[in-house]
Amino acid sequence: MPKWNDLQGRSFLESNARDRAVGLVDEGTFTELAGPFDRFYSPHLETLGEAVEFDDGIVTGVGRVGVTPVFVISQEGKFIGGSVGEVGGAKMVNAIRLAIEFHDTLAAAHPDLTDAEKPIVVISFETGGVRLHESNAGLLAHAEVMDQLQKARGKVPVIAVIGSKVGCFGGMGFVAAATDCIVMSEFGRLGLTGPEVIEQEMGKEEFDSGDRALVFRTTGGKHKYIVGDCNYLVADTLGAFHDQIAELATKSLADFEAMRRIGSPEKVAQQLRGVALAAEMQPKDARDVWAHAGNADPVALTDMPLPDFLAQVKRLSV
């Protein structure tokens, strides 16, 4: 395991799931739960003759940021594209369940806890969604994670961090959208149907998945920040993500509720205004939306260094 101080300066994009889990919390505080030595691997892959991994591609554990207990879930994109199957899904579900139970026990014993002392959940997404090899078990795992998110709501804030190579797509795109807060780097990508799938189904005319610039300005962190699909945009280092989590850890439940994208009649009305705007504008490119949001030179935003971008970008309000 690399030293924590070295990890803080390391690229989030290029790190593996375990290094991310260790680096997202404070130095020396991470304890892995259901780790590789417990050997919870997929029985389905074994039957199919596919390679297995001892942690089923998902690292779960608990650590601390400042005085905040943090339950960490970190997906590994190199193992079958970060797909979520039965075992990995169960690990996600139980990490969130543990956080809720811990919150309840803690709140019962200490009724005067501050916001910072209450536990949070951090999920690092690197996935294309359901592991198709495990079909229904994988789908069910998604539903169970959503169920836990609903149970955690108003109790344990759930923060999504997305800055990985694979990004966050498919069923897990829905899961990320249902969290309380999303933190991305400009290299993170978030969506439902991935670029390759759109091209395969609708043709190259509709979406050219080989056009990296197009892919990133449609699904990448900068675009998601402008349209409000992510709450915070940070630099591509583990330290930047760690510091953002430290800042969020002290926020109140009301602050988190305000950062959500779904879950109340007001949020639904806001989403519908977004749909109406899209129908009216008929944007041909993400840059049309950026210009509509008030950015005079949308082309310049793409290659702009992050501090300059954050200083001058106008975000869409509907």
């Binding site: 590789p36 030595f37 297995v52 991994e53 001892f54 590994e76 190199k78 193992f79």
Partner: peptide, 18 residues
């Protein structure tokens, strides 16, 4: 002590040494 290393990516492997 036991050690774990590696990720089972394509063309890769992981090892548990105990």
């Amino acid at each position: 002590a036991p050690v774990h290393h590696g990720v089972v990516g394509s063309g890769d492997m992981e090892v548990l040494m105990e």
